[in-house]
Amino acid sequence: MFDFHLSGGLLYPHLQAFDTLALIGIALALVLGGMVKGITGIGVPLVAMPILVHFLPVQQAVLLLSMPIILGNIPQALEGGELLQTVRKISAPLIGTVIGNVAGVSLLIRLEPHDALAMSGATLIVAAGLMLAAPKLKLAPPLVKPVGFALGFGAALMESIASVPGPLLAMYLIATGATGRAFTKQIAIILVVSIVTLVTTFSSGARANGFDLLISAAASVPAIAGMLVIRPLRDRLHPLAFRAVVLVCVLAAAVQMIVKSGVL
């Protein structure tokens, strides 16, 4: 299914052209994302994406962040068994994410670079705003499936454009009463299915190949290193205050992305 030759692909030609400082900058973005996730639990892409777009086009940055998300969520998706039962329960957002990623990637690979940058910045603003405001929904039983499909579709669009599907998915799962381990398992399953769809669509429509996936998998290493480095400090920092500071910084970086795009 995937070609593992070095030639072609989306990531290797860009990374090959970078000097050492640029590669260090990319690695530091991933480490920083891992450190923030280690303290607050928010996703690596939300922090890493605004930094990565200084080095990579949005399309390549989204692809680079795909495997860290998959590898980080597979253990949680499999934890506790009952995989098929859980999949049936969250079938509506799952279907929405599959369709949303196909649509989102198809849109992303057709956008001009400045438009993609602006759209990614706007998506990050929405994501950070949702997490700061922490909106809560309460869904009546007849609305669970249609709202699940709609929010799954929207989350996949956010994933395709800026690698941040979490806020909409979290809103939906909390609204359906998912808590604790059930919440973690359900969101992990949706994220894995979402990213697999995203990578598959990239491979067919944007010339991504198997070597791109290996590079993306390698990007998990600095992200995990960041989480391990920050672990000794985790209990000394107030996670909610730190989370708020980080999200405000993400908002500022996302606004800068839109300004940089020149659409205004």
Rank of each mutant, 00 (worst) to 15 (best):
F4A: 14
H5D: 12
L6T: 14
S7G: 15
L15T: 00
A22S: 13
A27K: 09
V31E: 04
L32Y: 03
M49W: 09
L56V: 10
L65A: 02
I69P: 00
G72N: 06
I74F: 07
I74Y: 11
L78T: 08
E79T: 14
Q85T: 01
I90V: 14
S91N: 13
G96D: 12
T97E: 07
G104C: 07
V105Y: 02
V105S: 02
L124P: 08
V126L: 13
V126D: 01
A127G: 01
A127P: 00
K136P: 01
L137F: 13
K138N: 04
P142D: 09
L143W: 14
P146D: 07
P146C: 06
G148N: 01
F149C: 03
L151A: 08
G154T: 03
A155C: 03
I161V: 14
A162Q: 13
S163P: 02
S163R: 07
S163G: 06
P165F: 00
M171D: 04
Y172S: 12
L173Q: 03
T184C: 02
I187F: 10
I187G: 00
I189V: 05
V192F: 00
V199R: 00
T200Y: 06
T201D: 07
R207Y: 15
A208D: 02
N209V: 11
L237P: 12
P239M: 15
A244P: 02
V250I: 15
V250H: 09
L251M: 15
A253W: 10
V259P: 02
S261Y: 06
G262T: 12
V263L: 13
V263G: 11
